[in-house]
């Protein structure tokens, strides 16, 4: 059994949730929790499963507050998470998936201290694009990596740390387009 945890605090559909839903299609027995669920409920489910998949956004170069506080809670109950398999998906706003590496090192420290079996990671840049079905066509590489990662999870195999992002564009053009879209949002809010 799998425990899937969406670490995003967003009220609307998160990118993290999108990635977990994709993975869940490959699994038979699983539960998806949102980070706003009661932590004890999540822990109770973890006790019954053998594999945890955590997806969370990058906030200030580290796991977001709610994810961190869940990790602190699980660490305080570490005899009950010990020896579980653990996969993580971290997505960030900037285009380069490498921004997620600091957060990954924090996650790995948590795994070591909690005696959890670290099984691999998927680090996604341009998460707000890769995490939306409408941009599927310009995210082929990233979605293919998501598929590879799903297969590892399904077979409970070790995965490499995969760093990925959207296709096309270079950083300069990405900045230009992103800035246009920020201006649009700001204008819309003025009305």
């Amino acid at each position: 059994m799998y425990t899937l945890i969406d670490g995003s605090p967003k009220k609307q559909q998160s990118n993290s949730k999108y990635f977990l839903e994709y993975i869940s299609k490959h699994l038979d027995e699983y539960h998806i929790y949102n980070i706003n669920n009661n932590y004890k409920l999540i822990l109770d489910n973890i006790k019954q499963s053998d594999t945890i998949v955590l997806a969370h956004p990058l906030y200030v170069d580290s796991p977001n507050y709610s994810t961190l506080s869940l990790l602190e809670y699980l660490y305080n109950n570490k005899d009950r998470v010990a020896n579980k398999n653990f996969y993580v998906i971290i997505n960030c706003g900037f285009r380069e998936g490498e921004h997620n590496l600091t957060a990954l090192s924090i996650i790995k420290n948590w795994c070591t201290k909690s005696n959890v079996n670290y099984m691999g990671s998927l680090l996604i840049g341009a998460g707000e694009i890769v995490g939306k079905p409408k941009y599927k066509l310009i995210c082929k590489k990233a979605l293919n990596n998501l598929k590879l990662f799903s297969n590892c999870i399904k077979n409970k195999e070790l995965s490499k740390d995969i760093i990925t992002t959207m296709d096309l564009l270079n950083n300069k053009i990405y900045c230009k387009l992103a800035n246009k879209s920020w201006n649009k949002k700001i204008k819309r809010n003025k009305k």
Binding site: Y59, S62, Y65, L68, E72, Y75, S105, W110
Partner: peptide, 18 residues
Amino acid sequence: NKFGCFSSSVKKVLERCI
């Protein structure tokens, strides 16, 4: 220190400073 990161309490405030 929490796993090489800020404590969740401190993190909560930092996220509101972006």
